[in-house]
């Protein structure tokens, strides 16, 4: 089966004129159907830029970006809109309070992609999508401000799932949630993968939150993938100093943690 995501030697720059700088350099990444790949890195490492590049939101300088068999990097205008309308790739934002229109009832936001396609029976499909993510369909009439953070993020997942995508790009989907909502949302994403065979690219700065759900992990540092492999291997035997620092900084992964001198030595190597 072909890969859902196949990124080769990707380079992306953002900004204009003197402020322009290279965010991603020579990135290679693959995501297979039914696989959850964690993309880990600190703030500013280029995680979101990489995810946005998969949707054609950034112009690429070099390399190829193939998503569900389509070369996204070369799409423009109507061809890009048609690729997005097909709905085979969906994006889940970090903060659902910002990604859902505050003046629209949840049902309108969830069914928006169907409305754009001119589909019929939208109300029933919205109700079905909400129930599939464990929400009461009556919540369709509520505004985002009238439900809890966990319910908002579930509604955002329902919005993403309503087009029956093959790939979900989850940009820190649990970082704005409390501990119980976080667990529930992670379980929901795992269930969607198991039941529907969706591939997930799970972006996070927190190794601890992705270790339990991912099959593979790619570590992004200063715009480069510095380490990639099976989750158990990357966490159990990190080879790059930055990965070791991440593993050591996640108390849930290493109860003993790294002592201060070892962390300082690793930081010195990275500087």
């Amino acid at each position: 089966m072909s890969d859902l995501v196949e990124v080769r030697d990707l380079a992306v720059s953002l900004g204009r004129g003197r402020a322009r700088r290279e965010i991603l350099q020579g990135v290679d990444l693959t995501v297979r159907p039914g696989e959850i790949v964690g993309l880990i890195g600190e703030t500013g490492s280029g995680k979101t830029t990489l995810a946005r590049s998969l949707l054609g939101l950034n112009r690429i300088d070099r390399g190829t970006v193939s998503v569900t068999g389509t070369e996204v990097g070369s799409l423009r205008g109507e061809a890009l809109r048609a690729f997005r309308r097909a709905g085979s790739v969906q994006y889940i934002f970090q903060d659902p309070l910002q990604s859902l229109d505050p003046d629209l009832p949840l049902g309108r936001s969830v069914g928006e992609a169907l409305e754009v396609r001119g589909a019929s029976g939208i109300a029933n499909r919205v109700a079905g999508a909400l129930e599939r993510v464990g929400l009461d369909s009556a919540l369709a009439a509520r505004l985002p401000s009238e439900v809890s953070g966990g319910q908002r993020q579930r509604a955002a997942i329902a919005r993403a799932m309503i087009t029956e995508p093959r790939l979900l790009l989850c940009d820190e989907p649990v970082s704005a949630l409390d501990a119980s909502s976080r667990t529930a949302v992670l379980e929901l994403l795992l269930r969607l993968r198991d039941d529907e065979g969706v591939g997930l690219l799970f972006i996070s700065h927190d190794l601890g939150s992705v270790a339990g759900v991912t099959d593979r992990i790619a570590v992004l540092h200063h715009g480069r993938i510095v380490e990639a492999g099976a989750t158990a291997q990357v966490i159990g035997e990190p080879s790059h100093p930055y990965t070791r620092l991440l593993v050591g900084s996640a108390p849930t992964l290493d109860d003993a943690g790294l002592d201060r001198t070892v962390r300082a030595a690793l930081r010195a190597q990275l500087a």
Binding site: L55, Q98, P102
Partner: peptide, 12 residues
């Protein structure tokens, strides 16, 4: 805003 970006990502 993100909700406008989310709408654009539907191909609207």
């Amino acid at each position: 805003s993100q909700y406008v970006e989310a709408a654009r990502l539907t191909g609207a």
